[in-house]
Design a binder for these strands. Structure first.
Lengths: 126, 126
DNA sequence: CTGGATCCCTTTGGATACTG
DNA sequence: CAGTATCCAAAGGGATCCAG
């Protein structure tokens, strides 16, 4: 599935992880579900701007990967709760590293981008 | 740009990072460029299956974000080298966490998926 | 050798309306 | 409340040819 070469298999492992947490809403949902069980509409309000369809899809995929546990309470009206699994909680600590990096370098990246756009942009339209 | 709510701004920082390293080839390129300067065709051979277009695009974006440094040697034939910046090297350490997580939980996720597909799959086609 | 430009297909994601 | 179904737009990504 993933050719084994020098550093590429390492990259492959990372990508497996990255692919799983990529997606516009995945991290937000994961973080919310780590603090405790959350309901569908709670998430819908929490993740402002998400559509029902994307919320459903993202939840399904997370459940499928074993990162979320879905509990249906057979009541009227129905009540469904989502909660992060242990595996997801471990991931959370790894995520913290990324948060740190993002925080530290947010400004650098922005500067780099503007610099790049200013420089290269002019060359193109020369 | 990113509404500040409870845990969402935290998720936002993660997403900034995730968005930057997502993309099919980004991590592979980053890892290769972290070990030392690499040339265009080296990468093309290393990342088996990548198209020239995607290699170019990914390199451009990484350079734009300040994660890669692009050095042009004014020779004939032209020679261009890419190397990871300090910022990218810091990211590499954060990535290591993810690698660990991916390695530890790869099997779990696969199991979870097959289990999910077996269970839910039947319900759908009922 | 190192790309740029173009075409085209696939995937992702959003809006909305409907249902148990 | 918690979804499902459908339609549609935008982005991702591959193939190929062209150029400095």
């Amino acid at each position: 599935m993933c050719e084994e070469q020098d550093g590429v298999n390492e990259a492959c492992s990372v990508m497996e992880a990255v692919n799983r947490i990529s997606g516009k809403w995945t991290v937000g949902i994961l973080l919310a579900a780590t603090e405790g069980p959350v309901r569908f509409t709670e998430l819908e309000r929490h993740l402002k701007g998400i559509s029902r369809r994307m919320l459903t899809l993202t939840l399904r995929n997370l459940e499928r990967d074993g990162l979320l546990r879905r509990t249906v309470h057979p009541t009227v009206p129905p009540k469904v709760e989502y909660e992060a699994t242990d595996m997801a909680r471990e991931l959370h600590s790894a995520l913290a590293e990324l948060v740190g990096w993002a925080r530290r370098n947010r400004a650098n990246i922005t500067r780099s981008r503007t610099g790049y756009d200013d420089t290269a942009g002019e060359l193109v339209r020369s």
